[in-house]
Design a binder for these strands. Structure first.
Lengths: 229, 229
DNA sequence: CAGTGGTCTAGACCACAAG
DNA sequence: TTGTGGTCTAGACCACTGG
């Protein structure tokens, strides 16, 4: 027993077999380091990862406790759509259907830190895989946060890809929902009206918390988001 | 400049301002430690986190390179449904509508490592928030992986919560999609037929890769999954 | 083969929070 | 006040892999 991976596995095992049941207090790092015959830093690394995974709760002075209700962290990658399509062995293309400069709705203005009269770039883009509609994108871009976006028409490189490479981002939030294809969407995505569609809405903010972009992606029927726990 | 958080921020900044553009090679850890006036372990911690976030690609001998297409890792929590409801300030309840012991479909048998004639527990559960339908759950439980599940009726404690506390898990996969409410679902969820619904399907496996459970959750209309980047 | 990141150590100081 | 985890250091050895 020496590596942090082994210690992580061993601690995980003890939790699983109820040697350390939910809510129980683990020995201090120094004690575990002594038991496992390693440095405290090694134990720290193992316990820190288990805490990040939601299995342990750690607080100074209070010690390390097995989580009562381990919250599984699900995650999935948000790759550039072009790569997502190409990795599925399909040919990617996109069409910019509208590129406007207008006043965004209040929710976007708040995110972008804009006054009521200010404007932003609005883009409607259709993503294609093997010439079949793949996803419909409605996007707002904050020119205050990304001035260079003014000079881009996003025809050669999609806004999705351009922003990933050119806009410093630090984080963001997203929601996933379902909606019906209306007249406009069924035409754009070449599907029946009334089909259920997956909708992902997300925004990204820069290091100062200023909104960079807000995007809504409506995927063609049957699309599944995939991830791991 | 001393803490790993500051170093992480500084490296992130240099990437963002294109001082280190995508594809470029960073100085070695020892060089950065020298520049920042700290130990190499501190630099290592900062760079390791940026690599986990997808911003850097690190390989021995080859060094640390800025990712060409930073893949944003999105994540969201999968809490016990009871807690999810209660944290929204609503009252939770659930009803087990069916509890059967039968032969699962081939996909589930494969996941569970079962022969064609073997059986597993099948549960249909309705989750309620303030007596309103919240989500419809269809679940298979592998009694080979979780023998204790045989003695549970999952009336007092939902299968969701019982499994989180009693079944050692190590990982799993999930998909998110959209579907229409058919006759059965619209009755169960008390919604109109033809409404678009969010569907989450997921499975969990134990430390040996053996399937523990497979569950499909269909949320009431308007439900949104929320997460962060 | 040589240079990089991956990891471990022994020790130290600090921040935090429970008592 | 005091014990805990959080972090940093200086040094060391190792694993991997490009040249």
């Amino acid at each position: 027993m020496q590596g942090w991976l082994e210690i992580k596995a061993e601690v995980s095992r003890r939790i699983n077999v109820r040697e350390w049941p939910p809510g129980s207090l683990l020995p201090a790092e120094t004690a575990l380091a002594n038991e496992f015959g390693c440095a405290r830093a090694t134990v720290n690394r193992a316990l820190r990862e288990l805490a990040e995974a939601g299995l342990l709760v750690r607080r100074r002075r209070a010690g390390t406790v097995v989580a009562e209700h381990p919250v599984r962290k699900a995650s999935f990658d948000i790759p550039v759509i072009r790569l997502e399509v190409e990795q599925a062995g399909r040919r990617y293309a996109h069409r910019v259907l509208h590129r406007l400069h207008e006043t965004p709705p209040a929710s976007v203005r708040t995110l972008f830190g804009l006054v009521a009269t200010a404007r932003a770039i609005k883009l409607d883009t259709l993503h294609l895989a093997d010439d079949m509609p793949y996803a419909w994108e409605t996007r707002w871009i904050n020119t205050k946060a990304v001035p260079d976006a003014r000079q881009q028409d996003f025809e050669a490189v999609s806004a999705n890809e351009w922003l990933v490479r050119n806009a410093p981002f630090s984080g963001g939030r997203y929601t996933v929902g379902a909606r019906l294809a209306g007249a406009e969407l069924s035409a754009a995505l070449n599907c029946g009206s009334g089909e259920p569609l997956v909708v992902v809405e997300r925004n990204t903010v820069d290091l100062d918390g200023l909104g960079i972009t807000q995007v809504q992606l409506v995927y063609a029927p049957g699309h599944l988001l995939r991830g791991g726990i």
